[in-house]
């Protein structure tokens, strides 16, 4: 199991807006092992979707640029691939499910054809054979194959998301990136889709990156979780480590801010004071320092380094750094 499938190293992605440069992703490190599901959790504008798009090299340029870093997929750096090579990877070895199933399907092509299209693009099969595989895919995601010739508008939101999942899995990808796949759906439908994704992930032996803002969804489906704040991974570890031995003050704040569905009702909810930093004006030092209740003097001065709490549990916070090393680092800045 310990084979690394995807390794993102020190990724920096920036967007130019007017004459300002914004680092949407800043020194991002993520590792996904084979067969594993990694959750990316963060609030709006944290850089979750940008990271996903960078993996597929789908950052619109201009205004976006992958400034530095490496993305190793099966030990090959995706960032040094030619566009023609990338096209063979997208939808084939790595595929993506987008948040909104309403807009990610072509409204004037039948759903069967949309699944067959991706099969024909990546596999040398006849049109008829692609149609047969597409029918099988429909059945696997729980849609009767009789609906092959129907158009997206004839399906409900949950059913459309099933079609999108069928397209994404049609070529048996090694990595599936799901960007908020259930956010637009109701809870009972969300439960259906999550169960389906979990089952298919095991059947197809696919690794998965699950982008979500919902810590509950991540707890259900992920093995590991990366908490993202202002373009950085501030905490990374197994779901158990992060949920039970929460280390980073931001992660702690996120958990405390969710109203509970059991236990005593609180009089007031905990909240993290302040707002996400303006991406054009990220504070010096730790980006969370202006909102942090356990802030140290050093936090405003120099950026924290990754510290391992245990073998698999990593946190980017000064509270966990060894004091002496910290001073050295600060001076070398």
């Amino acid at each position: 199991m310990n084979d690394v499938l995807l390794n993102i190293e020190d990724l920096v992605v920036s967007y130019t807006s007017g004459n300002k440069k914004v680092n949407a992703v800043n020194r991002m490190n993520i590792v996904v092992e084979k067969g594993e599901t990694v959750g990316l959790v963060g609030e709006t504008g944290a850089g979750k979707t940008t990271t996903a798009k960078a993996i597929l090299r789908l950052i619109p340029n201009p205004p976006g640029v992958i400034e530095k870093g490496k993305i190793y997929f099966s030990n090959e750096n995706l960032l040094s691939k030619k566009e023609s090579e990338m096209r063979k990877i997208r939808g084939n070895k790595i595929s993506m499910i987008f948040q909104d199933p309403m807009t990610s399907l072509n409204p004037v092509i039948t759903i069967g054809e949309q699944i067959a299209e991706v099969i024909r693009l990546h596999q040398k099969v006849s049109k008829a054979k692609a149609g047969i595989i597409a029918c099988e895919m429909l059945e696997r995601v729980g849609i009767p194959k009789e609906r092959y010739d129907e158009y997206p508008h004839q399906f409900s939101g949950g059913m459309k998301q099933r079609v999108v999942i069928a397209i994404a899995l049609a070529c048996n990808p090694q990595l599936l990136i799901a960007d908020e796949p259930t956010t637009a759906l109701d809870v009972t439908i969300q439960a259906q889709i999550l169960e389906l994704m979990h089952k298919l992930k095991i059947d197809f032996n696919t690794s998965m990156i699950m982008i979500s803002h919902d810590l509950g969804v991540v707890a259900e489906i992920c093995d590991k979780v990366a908490i993202i704040y202002a373009g950085q991974v501030v905490e990374f570890g197994t779901v158990k480590d992060v949920y039970k031995n929460t280390a980073h003050p931001y992660t702690k704040g996120l958990f405390a801010a969710i109203p509970s569905i059991k236990g005593d009702r609180l009089k007031r909810l905990f909240y993290i004071p302040g707002l996400m930093p303006d991406p054009t004006n990220i504070p010096n030092g730790c980006p969370f320092s202006p909102r942090c209740s356990s802030k140290l003097d050093i936090c405003e001065k120099c950026a924290p380094k990754d510290t391992y709490i245990n073998e698999n549990h990593l946190v980017r916070c000064h509270l966990y750094e060894e004091k002496e090393r910290e001073l050295d680092l600060c001076q070398s800045y």
């Binding site: 809870v187 919902d214 707890a219």
Partner: peptide, 12 residues
Amino acid sequence: KALLSSIPSTDL
């Protein structure tokens, strides 16, 4: 019952 059981929980 189904609605309440569908809520993803953060409590492992």
